[in-house]
Design a protein around this nucleic acid. Structure first.
Length: 204
DNA sequence: ACGGAGATCTTCT
DNA sequence: GAAGATCTCCGTT
């Protein structure tokens, strides 16, 4: 399948987030392909969005958000986890989409190895889990998602129709994030998909 | 099933 | 010095 283009990522973060559902996230390691269907995302807008890393201005960590759209913004958090974002909107407009969950497609043996001992439902159902499953670390910060040479890219997939998409507030924001940002419905996921994060009985 | 806390470190106050 | 776009383990029910 063709790769998503620079022009695609240059759109606003809301549009990119919604349409990334159904696309295929691909990682290539030593010629082996690991991939998954994107089933959960969150949009982080520009500096007016108090929940976004870009809110308090540019820092060494969040600098990729101001950079070229279509590149990866990979950051380390909680002392343990790498989180993957796709940079959106034009240069100098700091916005990104957080990839929160994928449905494994290719390279299941490698994913299982990276997620040693866990059940398939826990392989990629969360932003910190999927980066471990795909061996994504800070080495891939600023990687160009529109090129296969980066080892990390996104391909087009089957679009997910509106009746299979749910939206709601973003997850994991601290209570210090003020309204209305705390409640903005900028999380999108595929309804009833078992690989979406924080799935509990009846909440899919 | 649910809740609490630890892990572990970068970044910002 | 504290919190963080998280996950896992271990306790109790």
């Amino acid at each position: 399948m063709p790769l998503l283009s620079r022009d695609y990522y240059t759109q606003d973060a809301t549009t990119v987030a919604r349409t990334l559902l159904g696309a295929t996230l691909v990682r290539q390691i030593d010629g082996r392909r690991i991939s998954g269907r994107i089933v959960e995302v969150e949009a982080y807008h520009q500096q007016s969005d108090a929940a976004s890393h870009s809110h308090r201005g540019q820092t060494p960590r969040n600098q990729p958000m101001w950079g070229t759209p279509g590149h990866a913004y990979v950051y380390f958090t909680y002392g343990m986890y790498w989180l993957l974002n796709a940079v959106c909107e034009p240069v100098d407009y700091p916005a990104a989409v957080l990839i929160r969950a994928i449905e494994p497609l290719d390279g299941l043996d490698l994913i299982a190895a990276h997620r040693d001992g866990r059940s398939p439902k826990e392989w990629t159902s969360g932003p910190g889990r999927l980066t471990r499953a795909l061996a994504i670390t800070g080495d891939l910060n600023r990687a160009d998602l529109t090129l296969q040479t980066s080892g990390l890219w996104i391909e087009t997939g089957d679009p997910v129709p509106d009746d299979q998409v749910k939206t709601g507030p973003r997850i994991g924001l601290g209570t210090r994030v003020p309204e209305p940002w705390l409640s903005m419905p900028w999380r999108w996921w595929v309804a009833n998909n078992p690989h979406v994060s924080r799935v509990r009985a009846g909440s899919g």
